[in-house]
């Protein structure tokens, strides 16, 4: 025993190193789903305040672009009001499938993006709305043109959102023209493009087709635009197309987003729980 303590004492800096390293690796790989993780993200009060004030400073230089985007969106929405049904084509906020939603099912909470990254492999956004505005973990986030991500942590005034630009995350989606189910997954590096997985070879696909959310996982409402097909190819040994899409959302100029509250989510969840307890 004496010798063991002696050994540890002699190599104490090596042991400290290994200890700190394992704590660090635990934080990186295991800690994200623990409740305490909320204090270690930009949504906590202190760091939220700081990124918020940083964004206020940056806003000074970008207001013109923000105004243009919002005016664009207003124009599209006015158009949608005038033409009740025929607004499904193109990069629209409203598509036919949203109309299938129950009345009052979705509530949109506007929020400002105060922190955003797109050049890492796992990207997050921070919003200036939090629990006191009705945000909850798991809610969908969308921008003027398409989906943005999903709320991960909330504090009283801020929220951290997992961006669509997050490798290993697959969003359940549909090819709008044929209704084929597929998944959208970002491969890292290029913030303008993502890949579509599991689209079988018999699918009638062409460049320019829209990929929208499927609505199956109850995170995103059905029919929200994700992107348009920019290219596809058939590799000889695969069962699926290799498809790349141009993302509908321009993450680099994203300033305002909408958090989508699905008021029927608990009901849907508990029903699914009944039929399949393993879910």
């Amino acid at each position: 025993m004496q010798q063991l303590f002696g050994f540890i004492y002699k190599n104490r800096s090596l042991f400290t190193f290994l200890l700190l390293l394992s704590i660090g690796f635990f934080l990186v790989f295991r800690f994200n789903d623990y409740p305490g993780a909320v204090y270690f993200h930009t949504s906590n009060q202190v760091s939220g305040q700081i990124v918020d004030s940083r964004q206020n400073l940056k806003d000074f230089f970008g207001l013109r672009d923000v105004n243009r985007t919002l005016a664009d969106e207003n124009a599209r929405l006015r158009q949608a009001l005038l033409t009740p049904i025929a607004v499904t084509a193109g990069r629209g906020l409203v598509t036919s499938q949203v109309a299938e939603a129950l009345p009052g099912q979705f509530r949109f909470i506007p929020a400002k993006v105060i922190n955003n990254s797109w050049n890492r492999f796992r990207n997050y956004l921070t919003l200036n709305k939090g629990a006191k505005d009705g945000l909850e973990p798991g809610m969908a986030v969308m921008g003027s043109y398409g989906i943005v991500g999903q709320v991960k942590y909330v504090s009283q005034n801020f929220a951290t959102v997992v961006s669509l630009l997050y490798t290993d995350w697959e969003v359940s989606s549909t090819l709008a023209s044929t209704g084929s189910n597929c998944s959208v997954s970002w491969q890292g590096i290029d913030p303008l493009q993502a890949n579509v997985l599991y689209l079988p070879l018999h699918t009638d696909i062409s460049v320019g087709d829209t990929v929208v959310t499927s609505g199956y996982n109850a995170v995103f409402p059905a029919g929200m635009p994700i992107g348009t097909v920019s290219g596809f190819e058939q590799t000889t040994d695969a069962n699926f197309f290799d498809v790349t899409i141009d993302l509908a959302t321009d993450f680099q100029s994203l300033r305002y987003v909408y958090v989508v509250e699905n008021s029927y989510l608990p009901e849907q969840d508990s029903l699914q729980q009944l039929t399949d307890p393993a879910l």
Binding site: F17, F25, L27, A37, T42, S47
Partner: peptide, 19 residues
């Protein structure tokens, strides 16, 4: 590193690099 991680949503990565 942990302090920097909090601001960049990279929990643990800067802490390991700093160590």
């Amino acid at each position: 590193g942990l302090g920097v991680d909090v601001f960049s949503d990279t929990l643990g990565i800067h802490a390991v690099a700093g160590t």
